[in-house]
Deep mutational scan, measured.
Amino acid sequence: MDETGKELVLALYDYQEKSPREVTMKKGDILTLLNSTNKDWWKVEVKITVNGKTYERQGAVPAAYVKKL
Rank of each mutant, 00 (worst) to 15 (best):
M25P: 02
K18H: 07
L33H: 00
T4P: 13
E22A: 04
E17D: 04
V50N: 07
K47G: 04
Y65Q: 05
A64F: 08
V9Q: 00
A63L: 01
D2P: 14
A60E: 15
L33P: 00
K18E: 07
K68L: 14
L12A: 02
K26P: 01
K39C: 12
R21W: 15
G59Q: 01
V9R: 01
L10Y: 11
Q16I: 14
G52E: 07
K67L: 11
Q16W: 11
L34R: 02
S36M: 10
R57N: 05
T49H: 10
G5M: 11
E17Q: 13
L34C: 07
M25T: 02
N38F: 06
W41N: 00
D2H: 14
I30N: 00
M1Y: 13
Y65L: 14
A64Y: 08
G52R: 02
G28F: 03
P62C: 07
Y13K: 12
P62T: 04
N51F: 08
L69Y: 07
L12P: 01
E7T: 12
S19P: 04
L8P: 02
T37I: 10
K47P: 06
E17S: 15
V9G: 12
K6P: 13
Y15P: 02
V50W: 07
E7Q: 13
V44W: 01
N51S: 08
K27F: 04
A64R: 13
N35H: 08
E45I: 13
V61M: 04
P20N: 10
K68Q: 06
D2S: 13
W41M: 06
W41K: 00
T49M: 11
V44T: 00
G28E: 01
Y15V: 02
A11G: 03
A60N: 15
K47R: 12
K68T: 06
L10A: 03
E22C: 07
K39W: 05
G59S: 02
I48M: 09
R57C: 09
A11Y: 03
N35L: 06
R57S: 05
K6H: 13
D29V: 03
E56Y: 15
I48N: 06
N35I: 06
A60S: 14
Y65N: 05
V23K: 01
M1E: 12
K68G: 03
K53Y: 11
A64P: 06
L8T: 07
M25A: 02
T4N: 11
V61H: 01
K39Y: 06
K18R: 13
A60D: 15
V23T: 04
T54E: 11
K39V: 10
T24R: 05
T24S: 15
A11R: 01
K43G: 08
I30D: 01
K6S: 10
V44E: 00
L8D: 02
K26Y: 09
I48P: 00
V46W: 06
A11D: 01
A63C: 07
T54L: 09
K39S: 11
A11V: 10
L69F: 08
L34A: 01
S19Y: 05
E7M: 13
Y15F: 06
W41C: 07
V9N: 02
D40I: 14
W42M: 01
I48K: 07
I48W: 13
L69H: 04
A63D: 03
N35K: 07
T37S: 14
I30C: 08
G59E: 01
V9C: 13
A11C: 13
L10I: 15
G52A: 05
Y65H: 07
L31Q: 00
N38T: 06
P62V: 04
L69T: 04
V46I: 14
V46M: 09
V44G: 00
L69V: 10
L31M: 12
E22P: 03
K27Q: 10
V9M: 03
T4V: 14
D40H: 14
K26A: 09
V23S: 01
V9L: 09
V66A: 00
V61F: 01
I30L: 07
D40F: 15
Q16N: 14
V61L: 01
Q58P: 03
D14K: 03
E7G: 11
L8K: 11
E56A: 15
K6N: 09
Q58W: 06
V44F: 04
I48D: 04
Y13F: 13
V66I: 07
G28Q: 01
T37P: 04
L34P: 01
W42I: 05
W42P: 00
R21P: 05
Q58L: 06
G5F: 11
V61W: 03
P62K: 04
E56N: 14
Y15R: 00
T54V: 13
G5I: 12
E56R: 15
T49Q: 10
L69W: 08
T49L: 10
K47W: 08
Q16R: 10
E22S: 05
E17W: 06
W42G: 00
Y65I: 06
R57W: 06
V46G: 04
L34I: 14
N35Y: 05
E56Q: 14
L10S: 03
D14Q: 04
W42L: 05
L31S: 00
S36L: 04
K18S: 08
G5C: 15
K53W: 10
L34Y: 02
I30T: 03
I48R: 08
K53C: 14
L10N: 04
K27P: 02
E45T: 09
V50G: 05
E45F: 05
N38W: 05
D29Y: 03
T32D: 04
Y55E: 10
Q58I: 12
A60Y: 15
G5H: 13
K18Q: 14
V23G: 00
E56V: 15
L10G: 01
G52T: 03
E56K: 15
T37W: 07
E17P: 14
E3P: 13
E7I: 14
T4Y: 12
W41P: 00
E17N: 07
R21N: 15
W42D: 00
W42K: 00
Q16V: 15
V61A: 03
Y15G: 02
L33D: 00
A60L: 15
K18T: 11
K53S: 10
K39N: 11
D14F: 04
K47V: 12
V23L: 11
E7D: 09
T32Q: 08
S19C: 10
V61K: 01
S19D: 10
D14Y: 03
V23W: 04
E3S: 14
A63V: 05
A63K: 04
W42Q: 00
V9T: 02
M1Q: 13
P20R: 08
K68A: 07
E17F: 09
T4L: 12
Q58M: 09
Q16T: 14
T32G: 06
A64N: 11
A60G: 06
D29E: 08
D14S: 08
T54W: 08
G52Q: 05
K26G: 03
E45A: 14
L12N: 01
A11P: 01
K18W: 04
R21V: 11
E45Q: 12
T32R: 13
V66Y: 03
T49C: 15
N51T: 05
K18I: 05
L31V: 05
M25E: 02
E45R: 10
E3Q: 14
A11T: 02
T54M: 10
N35V: 06
Y65S: 09
T24H: 02
L31R: 03
D14P: 04
G59C: 06
L12K: 04
G59I: 07
D2F: 13
V23F: 11
Y55A: 06
S19G: 11
E3T: 14
P62A: 03
T24E: 02
T54S: 11
G59A: 04
W42V: 07
M1D: 12
